[in-house]
């Protein structure tokens, strides 16, 4: 034991100095959801299968839908992505989603700002 311990002193610490050094997540890590409104047909299968009711699909016009995702409720299981028949939902590896203001956790993906990722969390929230 003592040799292993003494050897550690010469090694670089194994600690990752988050948030100063960001960690690269695995390629298919289940992070924040992304919604493509142009592909959505409004079948609402994702709403039906979501374990926590985090996703809401609303009709905003003729064959136009927007999705509201509650990041606070979402458990990042990715079931909605599997349930979607038209691949209108996608999972990204973006994981830094903490917010001080609970209102900012509700993200709406509409037609105007299609594919736009939500507001980046403030510095205070990330720490």
């Amino acid at each position: 034991m003592i040799m292993e311990v003494l050897r550690s002193i010469l090694k670089k610490p194994a600690t990752n100095l988050y948030p100063a050094e960001k960690l690269e997540m695995a390629e298919k890590y289940r992070g924040e959801l992304k919604f493509y409104p142009e592909r959505c047909i409004g079948c609402k299968l994702c709403m039906r299968d979501c374990p926590t009711g985090a996703i809401t699909i609303r009709k905003v016009g003729e064959k136009k839908f927007e999705a509201e995702i509650d990041l606070g409720k979402c458990i990042y299981c990715g079931q909605c992505v599997d349930s979607c028949l038209k691949k209108a939902l996608e999972i990204t590896k973006h994981i830094e989603l903490a917010q001080l203001d609970p209102k900012k956790l509700k993200v709406v993906f509409g037609h105007e700002q299609a594919g736009e990722s939500p507001e980046k969390p403030s510095q205070g929230a990330a720490e």
Partner: peptide, 11 residues
């Protein structure tokens, strides 16, 4: 600090 470095931590 030494304790941490012996344990391969930053300290």
């Amino acid at each position: 600090k030494l304790y941490a470095r012996l344990q391969n931590r930053v300290g």
